[in-house]
Design a protein around this nucleic acid. Structure first.
Length: 468
RNA sequence: GGCCCCAUCGACUAGCGGUUAGGUCACCGCCCUUUCAAGGCGGCGGCGGGGGUUCGAAUCCCCCUGGGGUCACCA
C-alpha cells in the first residue's frame, strides 16, 4: 500500500507549487492503487489566513486532484487539520523528553536572537539544565519550548529515492524546536507524527525540505518508527532561476483560474515540469500521466515556469482537446464577467467556433470577440484608417448588401467577390473596410462568417452607422 | 559564508558508452489567405570548463565553475 499526502499551509493564496507537488503525490498514489491524503498544516497562528484552507481545497478539486482523506471529506486518521491534533503533538513531545531525545529550553526570542548573533545558531545550552529543574520550571508555568536533542557526536543517513544516500554529520543538524511555547508543534514534529499516524509511506515534497530531512529521520529513530521513503521534487523557478515567488511570477492558482486558464492545461503543463513522456508527447490526460509515471523519468534540474508555454498549451486545449460545446460552456462565466450576453446557445457555439484559433485563454474570448455580443465595442486606430480609405467603396456596397436576400456565407462571398471584380480592386480593399465597419477591428475571423453570424439586420445597421 | 542538491539550445526536455545530439515553446522565413490567428514546411540555437576511465564519451569518475536550496518558537 502506498499512501501519499500533500500538506499545505493555509497562509495565503492557493499556491502553484502546492498543485505541482500535489500532482505527483496524486499520481504516485493512483499509480499504486494507494491513497492520497490532504492534511492542513495550520500550526503557525501568526500566519494563518482565514478562508485560505477552503480556497486551497477548492483549487485542488478544480485541478482534478481529488483526495481520499482530508479535512472536508474525513477519513480514518482524522482530524486532518493539525490545529485540531494539538494533544497528540504534546504527548509525543513529552514521550521524547522521557526517552532522552528532547529537552526543555527557556530562552526568550530576544535571547535567542542574541545567541544567534554570537554563535551563529542555538548552542544547545539548555541541555545542561538538570531534568528535575526543567520539569519544575515547566510545572510552574515558565514559558519554554521543547527541542530535539540531536545525538552528538554521530552521523545521520538520509536516503532520497531520487538522489541516493547522503550522510550528515550530526554537528550540522540543529537542536530544532519541536514544540513551541504556545503549545503548537513546529513542522518537524507535526509532519513526522502525522505521517506516521496516518500511515504515509511515501513523502513526496519540494526540494526545499531536503536539508531538514535528517531532522525527520532522527525523529523517526527517536520514536522507534519506520521512516517513509522520501522523494524531493525540484523547485519550480522564476525566470531568473530562483525559487518561484509571488513577487516574480504568478503563484496563485486563483489567478490562473481568473485569467481563463483551463485546469486541464495547467495540470498538464505542471506535469511537464520535471517529467517527460517516454514518447515525447506533451499533451496528455491525467490518466495517461498516471499510467506513464515513473520516477526514472523525473529530472532534477529546477524548471523555470514559462507562462508563454502554458498559454500555448491552454490554446491547444481550447482548439484541439476540448469539444466545441465544452469550450462554449467554459467561456460563459467570462462573458458574464465582461457584462456580455448571448442570444442563443447556437449563436455562442458558432462564435466560439469562429474564434477558436484566436484566443489562448478563456478571458481573451470576450476581449477579442466583444463585437459579436454588443454594439458597444471599441474601434482601433487601424480600423478607423481602413474605414476612411474604403468609405467610397462601402457607400456603393451598401445598397447591394441591402438588396441581398440570401444571407449565407457562400452567397455573401459571391457578392463581395463580384463587387470587387466589378470595381477592379482586390477583395481585401473591400473586405478590410467592411471588416472595420462591422467589428471595429482588423483582426477578426473570416469576413463572410462574421457577416453571416451577425445577420443582415445588425450588419446593415453597423454599416449604416459608419456611413453617416 | 557553512552544509546540501543540481548542471543538454533563451525556456521545458529526450538521451542512460558508438546518434548528422531528437522533440516542444519562443524567435525568424516560406506556404495557405479577405485581416488576424490557427495550421503546414523550413531555419536559428545546446552538451559550462579541465582532468581522467575507455578503442570510443553529452552519457562513468574527480576537480573547478555556475545555478539553486537551507541555515526561525515559518512551513
Amino acid at each position: 500500500m502506498v499512501v501519499t499526502r500533500i500538506a499545505p499551509s493555509p497562509t495565503g493564496d492557493p499556491h502553484v507549487g502546492t498543485a505541482y507537488i500535489a500532482l505527483f503525490n496524486y499520481a504516485w498514489a493512483r499509480k499504486n492503487g494507494g491513497r492520497f491524503i490532504v492534511r492542513i498544516e495550520d500550526t503557525d497562528r501568526t500566519r494563518y489566513v482565514p478562508g485560505a484552507e477552503e480556497r486551497i481545497l477548492a483549487a485542488l478539486r478544480w485541478l482534478g486532484l481529488t483526495y481520499d482523506e482530508g479535512p472536508d471529506v474525513g477519513g480514518p486518521h482524522g482530524p486532518y487539520r493539525q490545529s485540531e491534533r494539538l494533544p497528540l503533538y504534546k504527548g509525543h513531545a513529552e514521550e521524547l523528553l522521557k526517552r532522552g531525545w528532547a529537552y526543555r529550553a527557556f530562552e526568550t526570542p530576544e535571547e535567542l536572537e542574541q545567541i544567534r548573533k554570537e554563535k551563529g545558531g542555538y548552542d544547545g545550552r539548555a541541555r545542561n539544565i538538570p531534568p528535575e529543574e526543567a520539569e519544575e520550571r515547566a510545572r510552574r508555568g515558565e514559558p519554554h519550548v521543547i527541542r530535539l536533542k540531536v545525538p552528538r557526536p554521530g552521523t545521520t543517513e538520509v536516503k532520497d529515492e531520487l538522489r541516493g544516500v547522503v550522510v550528515y554529520d550530526n554537528q550540522e543538524i540543529p537542536d530544532v524546536v519541536l514544540l513551541k511555547s504556545d503549545g503548537y508543534p513546529t513542522y518537524h514534529l507535526a509532519n513526522v507524527v502525522d505521517d506516521h499516524l496516518m500511515g504515509v509511506t511515501d513523502v513526496i515534497r519540494a526540494e526545499e525540505w531536503l536539508v531538514s530531512t535528517p531532522i525527520h529521520v532522527l525523529l523517526y529513530r527517536a520514536f522507534g518508527w519506520e521512516a517513509p521513503r522520501f522523494y524531493h521534487m525540484p523547485l519550480l523557478r522564476n525566470p531568473d532561476k530562483t525559487k518561484i515567488s509571488k513577487r516574480k511570477s504568478h503563484t496563485s492558482l486563483d489567478w490562473y483560474k481568473a485569467e481563463g486558464f483551463l485546469p486541464e492545461a495547467l495540470r498538464n503543463y505542471l506535469g511537464l515540469m520535471g517529467f517527460s513522456m517516454p514518447d515525447g508527447r506533451e499533451i496528455f490526460t491525467l490518466e495517461e500521466f498516471i499510467q506513464a509515471f515513473t520516477w526514472e523519468r523525473v529530472s532534477l534540474g529546477g524548471p523555470v515556469f514559462d507562462l508563454e508555454k502554458l498559454r500555448w498549451m491552454n490554446g491547444k486545449y481550447l482548439r484541439e482537446v476540448l469539444s466545441l460545446e465544452e469550450v462554449a460552456e467554459r467561456v460563459k462565466p467570462f462573458l458574464r464577467e465582461a457584462g456580455l450576453s448571448w442570444e442563443s446557445e447556437a449563436y455562442l457555439r458558432r462564435a466560439v467556433e469562429l474564434m477558436r484559433p484566436r484566443f489562448d485563454t478563456l478571458k481573451e474570448f470576450p476581449e477579442k470577440a466583444r463585437y459579436l455580443f454588443t454594439e458597444d465595442y471599441p474601434v482601433s486606430e487601424k480600423a478607423k484608417r481602413a474605414l476612411e480609405e474604403g468609405l467610397p467603396l462601402l457607400r456603393e456596397l451598401y445598397p447591394r448588401l441591402e438588396a441581398q436576400e440570401e444571407w449565407s456565407e457562400a452567397a455573401l462571398e459571391a457578392l463581395l467577390r463580384g463587387f470587387a471584380a466589378e470595381k477592379g480592386v482586390k477583395l481585401g480593399q473591400v473586405a478590410q473596410p467592411l471588416r472595420a465597419a462591422l467589428t471595429g477591428s482588423l483582426e477578426t475571423p473570416g469576413l463572410f462568417e462574421i457577416l453571416a453570424l451577425l445577420g443582415k439586420g445588425r450588419a446593415l445597421s453597423r454599416l449604416a452607422r459608419v456611413l453617416s
